[in-house]
């Protein structure tokens, strides 16, 4: 049964995995996450965005985070990508037929 998991669950799994990586200081919520929206949107995961795409058929996970000083940004980005893949693979094995990509944007070194 190839049923794609709920996007919010994917975001939460990705966020948990990324948060466990040494060198991740915090997620960078977008300003739009912090400003009160006119229509309340429940359960956003700050700094983590899951975007399903049609052309090509793919699920993109976009993570924005701050890197802790003393850690190299490139290495942290790599470790986060690997941790997120591992966590998604472990929680949703063989569930998806689509490719998943993880992109990481470092917004600050603190």
């Amino acid at each position: 049964m190839n049923r794609a998991p709920d996007l919010r669950l994917i975001a939460e799994t990705a966020a948990r995995a990324a948060a466990g990586v040494p060198g991740v200081a915090y997620f960078s919520p977008r300003l739009t996450d912090r400003l009160r929206p006119a229509r309340p949107s429940a359960g956003r995961t700050p700094g983590v965005r899951v975007v399903p795409r049609d052309t090509p058929h793919r699920t993109d996970i976009e993570i924005s985070l701050a890197v802790r000083g003393g850690h190299q940004a490139t290495a942290v980005a790599r470790d986060v990508r690997l941790a997120v893949f591992e966590a998604l693979h472990a929680e949703y094995p063989r569930v998806w037929a689509t490719e998943v990509t993880v992109s990481i944007t470092v917004t600050a070194i603190v």
Binding site: A73, T74, A77, R81, I104, T105, V106, T107, A108
Partner: peptide, 17 residues
């Protein structure tokens, strides 16, 4: 762009450093 595939840093963060 970082060396890491699909890893990025904002110009602002790099510039501050």
């Amino acid at each position: 762009p970082l060396e890491e595939p699909d890893g990025w840093i904002t110009e602002t963060a790099a510039a501050r450093l």
